[in-house]
């Protein structure tokens, strides 16, 4: 008969086998909300790991997470290919400032092809001077993802894969996979996000309705996700 401590030990063992787990434990970044941090197996988002971000508010979530990772020293490197940037719009420094990102700590890398984006992200992740790397991509195969994950582990920088295009449930090397979409609550002016953590190595998926606080530069969960309507759930999945 398994008691709580045996279960916990087994979970820890699975986590370490799974590649997620405790090895990131010491180097993590809080998201600013105690409930979300506590839910993550590492007590926060691990640095030196790859995180995947999708959904309609993906750019905002990438900026917000980058801002959290930038609380430590280091540079933010943002890699994008020209075609994607033309479609999505180019990164705008006055908007980044509102996420608490000082453009003086940002280096923009404009690539010609997705393969160059991946290469640039790989090089940046390995550099000890870099705190966080954002790579805008449309698709990513497992091998390329693994390579980025290894680079992140070697260099210690956090890698954020900002994914555009159709949602993809194919396996990924990312340690956590997020989807951020607008939450349509009763108050139209509240600008809430539905944050969906739909895959986490060594943990269980969860979602939260959060607001991004521009003053404290942190997330704050505003409601239990249980009572969100089914339509929202489908939105988050699609």
């Amino acid at each position: 008969m398994a008691d709580a401590s045996t279960l916990a030990a087994l979970r820890a063992r699975i986590r370490s086998l799974d590649g997620g787990g405790a090895r990131f434990g010491a180097r993590r970044s809080s998201l600013g909300d105690a409930a979300i941090d506590a839910h993550l197996p590492w007590g926060g988002l691990p640095r030196a790991a790859l995180h995947e971000i999708g959904g309609g508010l993906a750019s905002g979530l990438a900026a917000a997470l980058a801002s959290r990772f930038l609380r430590a020293a280091g540079t933010l490197v943002w890699c994008a290919d020209a075609a994607l940037a033309a479609r999505q719009g180019a990164l705008y420094a006055p908007g980044l400032v509102r996420f608490g990102i000082d453009p003086a700590r940002l280096i923009l890398v404009r690539c010609r092809r997705a393969t160059e984006t991946l290469w640039a992200a790989h090089e940046a992740l390995r550099s000890p001077a870099v705190a966080c790397v954002v790579a805008e991509i449309e698709g990513l195969d497992l091998l390329a993802g693994r390579r980025l994950q290894l680079a992140a582990e070697a260099g210690g920088a956090a890698g954020l894969l900002l994914r555009f295009g159709r949602a993809d449930t194919a396996p990924s090397a990312a340690v956590t996979r997020w989807r951020a979409v607008p939450f349509l609550g009763d108050d139209p002016g509240a600008r809430l996000w539905l944050l969906d953590l739909w895959r986490v190595k060594g943990g269980v998926p969860a979602s939260w309705v959060v607001g991004w606080d521009e003053k404290t530069l942190s997330f704050a969960a505003v409601r239990e996700p249980a009572d969100r309507p089914a339509a929202q759930r489908r939105r988050a999945a699609g």
Binding site: A93, I107, V109, C111, S127
Partner: peptide, 24 residues
């Protein structure tokens, strides 16, 4: 850190061209 960053920028610029790596 400054040296490491300069090294990274050199590397990126060598392959992608000087205009591809920029600061706002």
């Amino acid at each position: 850190d400054v040296a490491e960053l300069a090294r990274l920028v050199d590397q990126l610029q060598a392959r992608l061209g000087p205009a591809a790596v920029r600061r706002l």
